[in-house]
Amino acid sequence: ITGDVSAANKDAIRKQMDAAASKGDVETYRKLKAKLKGIR
């Protein structure tokens, strides 16, 4: 179950990262990237 949750989280975070990148929001992008590392 835990694996599914983190996989879903990663997917959601990647989508947020894409949105931040397209807006040029480097700050948010970095925060999300750090979150991704924390999940692993």
Rank of each mutant, 00 (worst) to 15 (best):
K31H: 04
T28C: 12
V5N: 12
G24W: 03
L32W: 02
V26S: 06
A7G: 08
D11A: 10
I13V: 03
S6N: 08
I1T: 09
D25V: 00
Y29I: 04
D18T: 11
K35E: 09
L32K: 01
K31T: 05
V5E: 09
G24D: 02
A12I: 08
A21T: 04
D4W: 04
R40H: 14
K10V: 15
V5Q: 11
S22P: 00
G38K: 13
K15I: 07
A7H: 11
I13E: 02
Y29G: 01
K10Q: 12
Y29W: 06
A12M: 11
V26C: 15
L36K: 02
D18A: 15
S6V: 12
K35Q: 13
K33A: 12
D4G: 09
E27N: 04
A19I: 15
A20R: 00
I13N: 01
T28L: 15
V5P: 11
K37V: 09
D11V: 06
L36Y: 04
G38T: 10
T28R: 04
T28Q: 06
E27Q: 05
S22I: 10
K31Q: 05
D4N: 09
G3K: 11
L32D: 01
R14A: 04
T2F: 10
D4T: 11
K31Y: 05
L32N: 02
D18W: 15
T28M: 07
I13S: 00
D11W: 04
R14P: 02
A8M: 13
L32T: 01
G38L: 11
A12P: 02
L32Q: 00
D25M: 01
G38N: 11
I39F: 14
A20T: 00
G3S: 12
L32R: 01
N9M: 15
N9A: 13
E27G: 01
I39V: 07
Q16S: 04
I39A: 05
D25I: 00
Y29P: 00
A7Y: 10
D4S: 13
L36W: 03
D18C: 08
K10P: 09
T2N: 12
R40S: 14
A8E: 10
L32S: 00
A19N: 05
Y29S: 01
A34V: 07
A7P: 10
A8T: 12
D11N: 05
L36N: 02
G3L: 13
T28V: 05
A34G: 04
A19L: 13
A19G: 03
K33L: 15
I13K: 02
L32A: 00
R40I: 14
A7S: 12
D11Q: 10
Q16M: 12
G3A: 10
K31V: 03
K23G: 04
G24M: 03
K33R: 07
M17H: 02
A34D: 12
G38I: 08
